[in-house]
Design a protein around this nucleic acid. Structure first.
Lengths: 174, 174
DNA sequence: TGACATGGCTAACGTCGTTAGCCAACGTAG
DNA sequence: CTACGTTGGCTAACGACGTTAGCCATGTCA
């Protein structure tokens, strides 16, 4: 439903994503983004309707990248669930601020490219078989990543065992 | 590390928690809290050092309530894991904004009453046996709750099956 | 009675997203 | 070649935010 982005708008989105990833969510301000671009904050509104549209565009770029990574990791893998988990963890830990922005809020589905949500979910669907198990596995992986990112897990070296226990539990067929 | 709260400070925290739960995180402003109390925002600083301290106090009250609920639900339950999951889901869905505040960020451990974190985690520990499985189960439950709260799951009536699949997977001993 | 702590208040600062309105550069139609 | 509209900058400013400084009424207590 959103207008397609102009070349300049895509430049701005790329810079904004860089600011978010390098400097964190508190630095993702219109003034900071403009500063990196060498312009003033109000000029951004010539290219994008506002901050929310900017965040939506960043989220979309994140999902496109994640979907491609998940597909590449699971395609033809002997252990697709383990491969998916590895790619998911790598993405979340490689882009923690982006991952938070992507998952913190309801998806802006009206502005998402058609099929992107399904495409991102498909590799896990294929790896687990049933939709119910796919969702349970997704929840486990998302939960583990967030517990790691929010520093909730005791640092006693058992985190890896928890990952393995979860993967094993999700993998067993009943 | 934080000073104990005065009576007035505890009143303010209670009002602030009410504002958060009823009106959402965007309404949790110093001016709004003061308005509900019938005073002006700067007066709040006579009782609390700042907004962060207020949020920490709200988080603590949430954890105390959650810990009590988890203990009550699992104490002597025939199926402790299912009982824990029920209490956890009920808490999160009954206080969604509070739950987000409690889990969005690293725990302010320096300001937490001693033992509160462990007390909150203990019922699940007891329900699952091994620490690794407890963490995996925690991740699954936390992930499911967040996927529900952020409206990520398809609304096709399979969410309950996903919960059951996850609980069953976490329950099986290897 | 006087000193001091308590807990209100107003005014203001800097930051945020955002809007209004101005203007230089540029492409293009007449 | 000139006139005009579009593009994409700019400054100034608004209201909301957290927060600080500083004033003052009230109440307690030596």
């Amino acid at each position: 439903m959103a207008d397609p982005l102009s070349v300049r708008a895509r430049e701005i989105v790329a810079v904004a994503r860089g600011v978010l990833e390098r400097e964190g969510p508190d630095a993702l301000t219109m003034r900071r983004i403009a500063e990196v671009l060498g312009i003033r904050a109000p000029s951004l509104y010539k290219h994008l309707p506002g901050k929310e549209a900017l965040e939506v565009a960043i989220v979309i770029s994140g999902f496109e990248e994640a979907a491609a990574a998940f597909e590449a990791a699971t395609d033809g893998a002997p252990e697709p669930l383990a491969a998916f988990v590895g790619a998911y963890r790598a993405f979340a830990h490689g882009h923690p601020h982006l991952y938070r922005l992507m998952t913190d809020r309801p998806l802006p589905r009206a502005d998402l490219p058609p099929g992107l949500e399904e495409r991102t979910a498909a590799p896990l669907q294929r790896a687990t078989g049933s939709p119910a198990r796919a969702r349970a596995a997704w929840a486990f992986i998302h939960g583990m990543v967030l517990l790691e990112l929010t520093d909730r897990l005791p640092k006693d070296g058992m985190t890896e065992q928890a990952w393995q226990a979860g993967i094993a539990a999700m993998q067993r067929q009943e």
